[in-house]
Design a protein around this nucleic acid. Structure first.
Lengths: 223, 223
DNA sequence: AGAATAGTGTCTGTCAGACAGTATCGC
DNA sequence: GCGATACTGTCTGACAGACACTATTCT
């Protein structure tokens, strides 16, 4: 028996990467190639590499770089999961993060040939997840929803320029219920997070004004 | 050179234990006996012991059991701090928790002879803290305040039975500004977190009704 | 009676939900 | 004009802050 196994815990991260696809809140899942829990769908994750990572958030970014070909605009800690039994390899500590992928970047997901990848419904993934990932995913969704319900704007899920209707749709999809147009727009008028542009989207109907995130917008700090 | 030092991070916890003393929000500090940062005031903390702890929250409880002689009614994670440079002994991961000590239990703090202990002002401790503990303390205070501002009742900081005026005072101390009596009591009337008792405190003035936490009250879940 | 603290009543401005109405495009 | 989507105006009820008022005790 290896004594380091009893003295040092395994330390790693898992990441819930969210996007909005097809009017649904989606999360990226990968099919595990190795034991333990091989062939099970799971949140992307990996072990800390002290010689590579400057922090656990750095570990999370490194792990995701393997799955997604773009820099992620927002990554945030949700909580830690720890104990002797949650991973059969030994006492483990996992820090859960979530990240947001703008909906125009979903094609940046790397289709690695050895590894199956899927955008699953965040609220009901349709698979039994590996380890305690079902619990982790629920916690990540809960945190995201709480922030949006507390009036944080999920601008990182949108392209750089977007219309207010797009924003309203994303908020409504995250919260899981319709959002009143009038009061929503009234709120945004008095928000310093948005900058209105002098550009309009021309479609089959009345053009919609484009907006962009204010330079000092941060999803982390609440209004 | 020890190779495990480069492969495994140090894993431990720190705890911000809060109480309200003398109309002030206080936090428990200990004076470090050993290097590194010996003689510096710090949040109580300790290393994970995989053979003793069932989780990192368990580590936190074990570490605090050394300082306080009672079970703590609430302990909650704040976040993690990690990186190669925050502890001179190597790459480290620390999970920060905060806990609440009822104001009638402050005498349960163990006056260990080898170790100096102090209730310091949570918002300005008056010492330069060890490691990154100033940042950690600020984050713990911020989290506590955010919850109370979001209408969570800090009942765990009060004795089992308390008056509404006591509760109002604790809330006001945590938030750092006065709270209107009338609207505060109006809110509590429609709250299911409190149970009114048929007991009154008789003092030098009009007796005040006693209340207690509802059986299903939890500081974690927001109303 | 007077001081002190507990507890209530009321007024008012603010604001969010509801929903109807108007504006501007393509066809 | 008509459909479709963008955007605005207005009404109303709920509610929180402000603050004055009443209630009950002790001395």
């Amino acid at each position: 028996m290896n004594t380091t196994k009893e003295l040092f815990p395994l330390v790693g991260v898992d990441v819930a990467l969210f996007s909005v696809v097809d009017e649904r809140l989606k999360v990226l899942l990968v099919k595990r190639a190795r034991e333990p829990d091989a062939k099970r769908w799971a949140l992307p994750g990996g072990m800390l590499k002290p010689n590579l990572d400057a922090s656990l958030a750095g570990t999370a970014r490194r792990v995701l770089a393997d799955k997604v070909a773009v820099e992620l605009p927002h990554i945030e800690e949700v909580g830690t999961y720890s104990g002797p039994d949650r991973d059969p390899r030994g006492w483990s500590v996992t820090v859960l993060f979530y990240a947001l992928l703008p909906l125009d970047k979903i094609n940046a997901v790397v289709r690695n040939k050895v590894e199956a990848v899927e955008w699953a419904d965040a609220t009901s993934p349709g698979h039994r997840l590996a380890f305690d990932h079902a619990e982790q995913l629920a916690a990540a969704v809960k945190k995201l929803r709480a922030k949006v319900a507390a009036d944080a704007l999920p601008l990182h899920l949108l392209p750089e320029k977007f219309t207010l209707t797009q924003l309203q749709n994303v908020v409504s999809v995250i919260l899981g219920h319709p959002v009143d147009k009038s009061s929503f727009r009234r709120r945004l008028k008095s928000s310093s997070d948005l900058v209105e542009l002098d550009e309009f989207v021309r479609g089959a109907q009345r053009p919609a004004q484009l907006f962009t995130a204010s330079p000092r917008f941060s999803f982390t700090s609440s209004p």
